[in-house]
Design a protein around this nucleic acid. Structure first.
Length: 310
DNA sequence: CGGAACATGACCCCTGAA
DNA sequence: TTCAGGGGTCATGTTCCG
């Protein structure tokens, strides 16, 4: 749902590769429609095991007790960076409380519309609530408490999670690298966030030799460091605070030191593309989304370095 | 009857102000 | 931390017209 022409431009800057459009609802209990522009093999891809829960009821069994029959949702909508206000959930509770048993159709419609819009789940009699950060973490395929602690605030946590990859989805696409790189890979991870790609590769059993990770948010960098520490990684993790610091010289320096990169991965900011943005939906040229062009610049440099340092 | 034109509904990795 | 807040895009359904 990016503005018209954005996907065409993205492909044009990425060697005319067409995006593979994938909805994460086939990998977990929440939708996440994304276009992945990649040059990975597509034969013999395999999912992470054990398979992730595919329905709301499997993923959040405690909600089953309170889930009314007239709410037919089996999948959540896309997990976003913001959650519903307490006022809204209170308004919904009041609207439902006025009736014994099934509410009239108009009320059902209102409640369902708002529940879909804000991804509300049933947590009590006549009571809906937004997802907890823990639950989002689980739905996105991260280890429990991945984004917890380290002084991260509640709102920052929601933001980081809402901006992340869905791990199982990305892992499926990266799975073919396991046979291609039995000794592990050198990874250049741009806009790493909370490390969705890294977690996916780790879960696939692909050794991370050297990871160069560019991420602007300090809390996200610290989340990644903690994970790196806790999973007893044997490789090197190098943080870069800003993709714009990854100049050709800096990249050459890194390649000389650690060897050339086997994989470049990243999702550049989409906040100027999404419909949820009321103020600055400026398309690919927007302040943040234009960092996509840095991705292209860096990819070009990495490709030429790979041919020189083989 | 086929297709163009139009209406409706669902969805969305959110920002700014208080 | 909390809240209020619009609109573009696509899919689907409906009307209209030759």
């Amino acid at each position: 749902m990016a503005p018209k022409g954005v996907w065409q431009t993205i492909s044009r800057f990425l060697y005319d590769v067409e995006p593979e459009f994938v909805d994460s609802k086939y990998f977990c209990a929440a939708a996440r429609k994304r276009g992945y522009v990649h040059n990975l093999p597509i034969h013999n891809r395999f999912p992470l095991l054990p398979l992730h829960p595919h329905t709301i009821h499997e993923a959040l069994p405690l909600t089953r007790k309170w889930w009314p029959a007239w709410d037919m949702r089996t999948k959540l909508n896309c997990l976003q960076t913001c959650i519903a206000s307490a006022k809204l959930t209170e308004r919904i509770r009041k609207a439902l409380e006025a009736y014994e048993g099934e509410p009239p159709l108009a009320v059902q419609k209102f409640v369902l519309e708002e529940s879909r819009k804000w991804n509300l789940v049933w947590v009590g009699r006549n009571k809906v609530a937004p997802l907890e950060a823990d639950e989002m973490e689980m739905l996105l395929g991260f280890p429990r408490n991945h984004t917890r602690g380290g002084g991260i605030s509640r709102t920052e946590r929601y933001r980081s999670l809402g901006n992340s990859f869905q791990v199982d989805t990305v892992a499926y696409h990266l799975s073919t690298l396991k046979d291609l790189f039995p000794g592990g890979i050198n990874l250049l991870s741009l806009f790493s966030g909370i490390g969705g790609a890294e977690v996916a590769l780790h879960r696939l059993g692909i050794r991370l030799k050297t990871v160069v990770s560019a991420e602007i948010s300090e809390v996200n960098r610290s989340i990644m460091s903690c994970w790196w520490e806790q999973t007893n990684q044997t490789g090197n993790l190098i943080h870069i605070a800003d993709v714009q610091h990854l100049t050709a010289d800096r990249l050459e320096q890194l390649v000389k030191m650690y060897g050339s990169f086997d994989l470049v991965v990243g999702g550049s900011p989409c906040n100027n593309l999404t419909g949820s943005n009321r103020h600055h939906r400026d398309g690919l040229e927007g302040k943040d989304s234009s960092l996509f062009f840095d991705y292209c610049r860096i990819l070009d440099v990495v490709k030429s370095l790979a041919s020189r340092y083989r």
